[in-house]
């Protein structure tokens, strides 16, 4: 058992080190949601009327509304970015090094997943801290209650990235996937507007948003930030996590030979 933990520690530490080395990535990961929060939200607040919906008990400003969505956005980008680095690793060969370890392959992939999630969670807390400086705060207990929600959501989105990375052959193809995955997932969700608002304009888009796992990740975070419980969202996120992980394991199965073929 200790061999598993030794490997886990090393893989997570390597992810952290790499993240620290890429300072630009940290900054852009913070600037992106802050621009949405401080610029977009300020302009949009007048256009959108929010009614009182759970978990909120009073009228809220639009800035407060989109904070959970932006937490989700950080994790979505980070999940995709870590899978981008997986594709890069595969092209550069360091993935081979990882996968020729005698430890079971599923465990090695889970270690990568945990490493990516740890970085995501750290980024979200950095974002929440800056948002608090600008006066956009949640109840103090929310900052603690949100941790498990962030971990589950981060694992799910990283697993999605892992699954995608196993199915993509080359780095160049990845940019396309980012556009076809990140933007639809983000806009067809409850991150920027409540789903009832969406239903007023299009039933179809509303229905797509309802089954989008990202919607449920955002709702899970939203409820947790206000120390409330949303079992349906949790269940949906967990099911997605299992599905994406299964897809990733299938994708990285040596019998499929994706790990060494080039191009």
């Amino acid at each position: 058992m200790t061999a598993y933990l030794v490997a886990l520690r090393a893989i997570v530490a390597r992810e952290m080190l790499r993240f620290v080395h890429q300072r630009g990535r940290f900054v852009s990961a913070l600037v992106r949601p802050l621009v949405w929060l401080l610029v977009f939200a300020a302009g949009f607040r007048a256009a959108l009327g929010l009614s009182i919906i759970p978990p909120y008990q009073t009228y809220i400003t639009y800035e407060t509304y989109i904070v959970p969505g932006l937490c989700g956005m950080i994790m979505l980008f980070n999940g995709m970015q870590s899978s981008l680095s997986l594709v890069y690793d595969r092209e550069m060969g360091s993935m081979r090094l990882l996968l020729t370890s005698p430890l079971p392959r599923w465990w090695l992939l889970v270690c990568r997943l945990i490493g990516a999630t740890a970085i995501s969670v750290a980024q979200v807390y950095a974002f929440l801290a800056i948002a608090a400086l600008f006066g956009i705060r949640v109840p103090p207990v929310g900052y603690v209650a949100v941790l498990p929600a962030l971990v589950v959501a981060g694992l799910m989105l990283s697993a999605l990235g892992l699954a995608l990375s196993s199915l993509i052959r080359q780095l160049e193809n990845f940019a396309g996937v980012m556009n076809f995955v990140i933007f639809p997932m983000f806009f067809l969700s409850s991150a920027l507007y409540p789903l009832w608002k969406m239903a007023e304009s299009s039933r179809l888009l509303h229905d797509i948003s309802v089954i989008n796992p990202f919607t449920h990740a955002v709702e899970l975070i939203r409820f947790a930030l206000h120390a409330s419980w949303n079992g349906a969202a949790l269940l949906w996120v967990l099911l997605s996590l299992v599905a994406f992980m299964a897809l990733a394991l299938w994708g990285y199965d040596p019998g499929r030979g994706m790990m060494w073929r080039k191009g």
Binding site: T2, A3, Y4, V6, R9, I11
Partner: peptide, 17 residues
Amino acid sequence: DLSVRQNLAYFLALHGV
């Protein structure tokens, strides 16, 4: 970006050492 020693240590950790 890692030292020679760190590279070897990472590898050995993957082997559980």
